[in-house]
Nucleic acid binder design. Structure first.
Length: 210
DNA sequence: GCCAACGTTGGC
DNA sequence: GCCAACGTTGGC
C-alpha cells in the first residue's frame, strides 16, 4: 500500500539539492501540541477566570483544529529557533502528523496539511498573549507560523510508547525509526520526518498495536 | 507532581 | 566565548 503509487512516492522524496551547501529539503513533518494545558490543570479555575484567558496557553488538540472554520488554523506560539526554522522550510501541500504531547497518553493523533507557508506570527506582538516577545520588532519579526488544515485522524491512535519500541528495535537491528527525532531530539516541537519514517508510521495504522 | 534534558541568558 | 544559573519541555 505505502509506496504503491509512484507519483505520491516521488512527491514525498526528500529532494537532494544541487548546491550541497543548502540544507536538505524535507517533505513531511511532526508537530506537537498539548491537548490539555498544564496551567489549566494546575491553576484553580476560579482564580483563572479572574485573569485574562489570553494569558494562558490554550488546549489545542486535533479536535480543536478540526472544529475551526475550514478545519484550518495557524500554528502560532513556536518560540524555538530550530522549530521555527523547520516551519520556514515547510511547503504548501506537505503533510504533518499532529502529535499530542504532555498528556495522559502522548502520541500521533492525526494528519494535517500545510496550507499556508511561513508568515509572521502575530502573537509575538500581543502583550496579552502568553507568547508575547518584547524583543521582537515589527520591522524585523522573530517568529513565524504556518497554517495547517485537518486531513484525517489516524486509523488508530499511535502512542509514543509504541513508537519508542520500534525506535529501540530499529536502533538495535536497523530500521526506519532508528534516528527518529521524537527520541533523538525529544524537546523539539516541530520536526522533519524522512520519507522512510513517515511511510513506516503510516503502515502502523493497519497493524496491531505492539 | 517530579525531574532529566536541554535551550537561553547574562556575568565575567 | 565560556559556562553557571535559570526556564521550559514533556515523559513518566
Amino acid at each position: 500500500m505505502v509506496g504503491g503509487k509512484k507519483k505520491a512516492a516521488a512527491s514525498v522524496e526528500p529532494l537532494k539539492t544541487k548546491e550541497s551547501s543548502e540544507p536538505p529539503q524535507y517533505c513531511s513533518w511532526l508537530m506537537k501540541s498539548e491537548p490539555e494545558s498544564r496551567f489549566e490543570k494546575e491553576i484553580d479555575l476560579k482564580v483563572q477566570s479572574l485573569i485574562s484567558t489570553a494569558c494562558f496557553p490554550k488546549h489545542f488538540g486535533i479536535e480543536e483544529l478540526k472544529a475551526l472554520p475550514d478545519q484550518t488554523g495557524c500554528w502560532d506560539g513556536v518560540r524555538n529557533y530550530q522549530a521555527r526554522n523547520f516551519m520556514r522550510q515547510m511547503k504548501d501541500g506537505q503533510l504533518a502528523f499532529f502529535y499530542h504531547s504532555n498528556c495522559k497518553e502522548p502520541g500521533i493523533a492525526g494528519i494535517m496539511k500545510i496550507v499556508k507557508e511561513a508568515y509572521v506570527d502575530h502573537t509575538q506582538f500581543d502583550k496579552k498573549d502568553i507568547h508575547f516577545d518584547a524583543n521582537s520588532k515589527a520591522d524585523n519579526p522573530k517568529w513565524s507560523m504556518v497554517d495547517v488544515q485537518y486531513q484525517r485522524m489516524v486509523k488508530r491512535y499511535i502512542p509514543l510508547s509504541e513508537l519508542k519500541k520500534y525506535h529501540l528495535q530499529h536502533r538495535a537491528k536497523g530500521g526506519p525509526l532508528k534516528d527518529m527525532g521524537l527520541f533523538t531530539r525529544a524537546r523539539l516541537s516541530v520536526q522533519p520526518l524522512t520519507t522512510e519514517e513517515f511511510e513506516f508510521i503510516l503502515t502502523l495504522e493497519d497493524k496491531e498495536p505492539l
